[in-house]
C-alpha cells in the first residue's frame, strides 16, 4: 500500500509516495527522489556518510525509517549553496582540502554545519575533532576537516557580527 510522506526538503514541500514501508530516509532521498548527494557508506549508522539535517539536527538517514519522519524538514548537501554561492562550510572544505575521494564529504559537511550550529565546540580543535568523529573518512582527511570546520566557524562568526 502506498503511503504519502510529506517532507520539506531543502525548503521545498513535497508529497512523496512511499511504496515500501521499509524505505529509509536515505533510500528515499537517493533512489526515489534522486537526491544522490547523500551517500551510503555502511547503511548501519557506523560511518556518517548519510548525515542529513532533520529539523536542523544531524542524524544518520540510513537508520531513519522514512515514514517515521512524516512532516519533517530535511536539509541535504544539495540544499546548502545558494546558486553558485557556496555555504561557508563548503568553501572551507575546498580551501582546507578537507576531503580527497569526496565520498564521505556530503556527510562531513552536513555534520559540520550542525556542529557549528550546536555551538558547543566553538574554536576548540579538540572539541571539533570529537564532534566530527561520527563521520569516518577513509582517505583520512581529518586534519583538513578540522581546519575547515574551524575556518568556517570563524567565517560564520564574522558574518553574524556583521
Amino acid at each position: 500500500m502506498t503511503q504519502i510522506l510529506k517532507l520539506t526538503i531543502n525548503g521545498t514541500s513535497q508529497d512523496i509516495p512511499i511504496d515500501d514501508p521499509r524505505a529509509t530516509l536515505l533510500d528515499v532521498l537517493r533512489e526515489r527522489i534522486g537526491l544522490t548527494g547523500t551517500k551510503k557508506g555502511c547503511d548501519r549508522g557506523q560511518c556518517g556518510a548519510c548525515t542529513v539535517l532533520i529539523d536542523g539536527r544531524r542524524i544518520n538517514s540510513c537508520l531513519a525509517l522514512a515514514l517515521s519522519y512524516d512532516g519533517a524538514e530535511i536539509t541535504t548537501v544539495e540544499g546548502l549553496a545558494q546558486g553558485d554561492l557556496l555555504h561557508p562550510v563548503q568553501a572551507a572544505f575546498i580551501e582546507a582540502d578537507g576531503f580527497q575521494c569526496g565520498y564521505c564529504t556530503p556527510g562531513q559537511i552536513m555534520s559540520a554545519v550542525a556542529l557549528i550550529a550546536e555551538g558547543e565546540a566553538g574554536l576548540d580543535p579538540e572539541r571539533v575533532r570529537e564532534g566530527m568523529s561520527g563521520n569516518l573518512c577513509r582517505c583520512a582527511a581529518y586534519a583538513g576537516i578540522t581546519e575547515a570546520v574551524l575556518k568556517a566557524t570563524r567565517a560564520m562568526n564574522r558574518e553574524d557580527a556583521a
Partner: peptide, 9 residues
C-alpha cells in the same frame, strides 16, 4: 557513546 548523529536520534 556512539556519535553526535546517533545521539540526536
Amino acid at each position: 557513546g556512539a556519535s553526535a548523529q546517533l545521539r540526536n536520534a
